[in-house]
Simulated assay, not measured.
Amino acid sequence: MSNPQRHTYQPSQLSAGDFPVVMDTGVIAAGQNLKRGAVLGQVTASKEYLLCKVAAEDGSEVPTAILDQDVDATGGATNAPIRLTGQVLASQLHLGEGLSLAVAKAALRPLCIFIR
C-alpha cells in the first residue's frame, strides 16, 4: 500500500503576524525585475509602481506598498499583487537605492504596513 502524498501549509515568509492583510492589484512599471518583498512607490502621473528609490522625483520616492510576488516586467508593464496593509518581516524586504529600513518603516506605518 502506498502512502498518499502529503501537502502541508507553509505560511508566507513575508508575513510577520496576524494583522489583517489587504491586497490589491497594481501595475508594475516596465523595465523592472522585482522580487517579492520589494518596497514600492507609486508614480504620480501614471499610477504605476516602481521600486522605491530616494532620488526619484516622480512620486515613487515615497514608499506606498509591498510587492507580494516576484515580477518580471522587463518586457512591459504587468499586473501583480501588492500588499496595502499588514505586518512584514524586515529581513524579507528589498529596498531601492538610498531607501533605509528606518525611512521605509516610518513611511509605511501610517498606511498600516508594519515592518518587524
Rank of each mutant, 00 (worst) to 15 (best):
A56E: 06
A56I: 02
E97A: 10
L89K: 13
L95W: 00
A55Q: 11
T64R: 13
L111C: 04
G59A: 07
I113R: 01
I66C: 04
L34N: 08
L101R: 05
I113F: 08
L108Y: 06
T44A: 15
S91G: 13
V62S: 08
G76Y: 06
N79F: 10
Y9L: 14
D18S: 14
V103P: 03
G86M: 04
P110Y: 01
E61Y: 02
A104Q: 00
V62I: 15
I82F: 00
A29C: 12
Y9I: 15
T85R: 09
D70E: 09
P63L: 09
A73K: 05
A80W: 04
A56W: 08
Q32N: 09
A16R: 01
L84R: 15
D68R: 12
D18I: 11
K47W: 07
A29R: 14
A104T: 01
I113T: 05
G26D: 02
K53Q: 13
L89P: 00
G86L: 00
F114S: 11
G59T: 07
S91E: 14
V22Y: 03
A80C: 07
G31F: 13
E48I: 00
R116A: 12
D24N: 14
I28F: 03
R116L: 10
S15L: 14
L95A: 01
L101H: 03
S100G: 14
L40M: 06
E57N: 10
R83W: 14
T74L: 10
G26H: 07
M23Q: 12
D58P: 01
M1G: 09
A45I: 03
I115K: 00
V62F: 12
G98R: 01
T25E: 15
D68W: 14
G59E: 05
A80P: 02
A30F: 05
K47L: 08
P11Q: 13
S46D: 06
S46I: 09
T74E: 02
P63D: 03
G59P: 08
L67V: 00
G31T: 05
D18E: 10
V62C: 03
A106I: 02
M1L: 10
H94E: 08
G75N: 12
Y49A: 00
A80I: 02
A45N: 00
G37H: 08
S100I: 13
G75F: 09
L95I: 06
A38T: 15
L99Q: 04
L101C: 06
V103H: 10
A106K: 06
A55G: 11
V39P: 01
D70R: 11
V88N: 04
A73N: 06
D24A: 15
I28T: 04
P110D: 06
S46M: 12
D68K: 09
A73P: 05
D24M: 13
P11L: 10
V54T: 14
I66N: 02
V71Q: 02
D72M: 05
A45K: 04
Y49D: 03
K105E: 12
G76M: 06
P20S: 11
L67H: 01
Y9D: 09
T44L: 11
